[in-house]
């Protein structure tokens, strides 16, 4: 499956955020959306996720399954990281989930309520959740924000191993992913 965005236009009030934007991501390819804050990266991600509808233009194929990492973590605070993933991926057994989490979180963190975790741990949980979820496209909106350089490297490694053959859409504000994803399609956004 390849992902095609054709002539996407999206405005909020009188402000045109995306203006006739077109891009094609090949099967198992990577799309890196770059640009400063407020240029429409999250708007484009929301269109790909199906949360927002474009004013005009099309996204092909018409339906696909997404695994998102939102700009905010969007975890259920009173549940543990393991339970947060279990309710998204009910077919996975708990041992697998805990073992995956233990690769990126300190021991015992998998069973603590999310409210007791640090911002960085929540971010890593959100990334693991998206990677373990069965889908056609991984969509990550600034996934490494709030992580230190060591954890950034670990999580990039984790993403590249667990993306399998899925299309990866990733937005970058300051990070440079081009080195890691050599064949990536880079889409710079500006006003």
């Amino acid at each position: 499956m390849k992902l095609e965005l054709c002539n996407i236009v999206k405005s909020f009030g009188n402000t045109r955020v995306l203006d006739d934007l077109s891009v094609t991501v090949p099967e198992s390819g990577t799309l890196i959306i770059t640009g400063a804050s407020g240029v429409g990266k999250t708007t484009l991600v929301s269109i790909i996720l199906g949360i927002l509808k474009p004013d005009s233009g099309s996204v092909t194929p018409g339906s696909y399954r997404c695994s998102p990492v939102f700009q905010e973590d969007r975890l259920i605070e009173n549940l543990s990281p393991a339970d947060n993933i279990k309710i998204i991926c009910p077919s996975l057994d708990r041992e697998t989930i805990v073992s995956e989490l233990s690769k990126v979180l300190p021991p015992d963190a998998a069973d603590k309520p999310v409210s007791e975790l640090s911002g960085g741990m929540k971010r890593r949980t959100a990334i693991v959740r998206a990677c373990l979820h069965d889908s056609d496209i991984l969509v990550m909106d600034e996934p490494l924000s709030g992580l230190d350089s060591k954890n950034r490297q670990n999580m990039l490694q984790y993403i590249s191993v667990h993306r399998q053959n899925r299309i990866l859409v990733i937005t970058a504000h300051e990070d440079h992913y081009e080195d890691l994803f050599a064949d990536a399609v880079v889409l710079p956004l500006d006003r």
Binding site: L49, G50, I51, S67, P68, R74
Partner: peptide, 11 residues
Amino acid sequence: DLLEMAHVFGM
């Protein structure tokens, strides 16, 4: 935001 997350993940 959580309802949106649940919808996208197909919870």
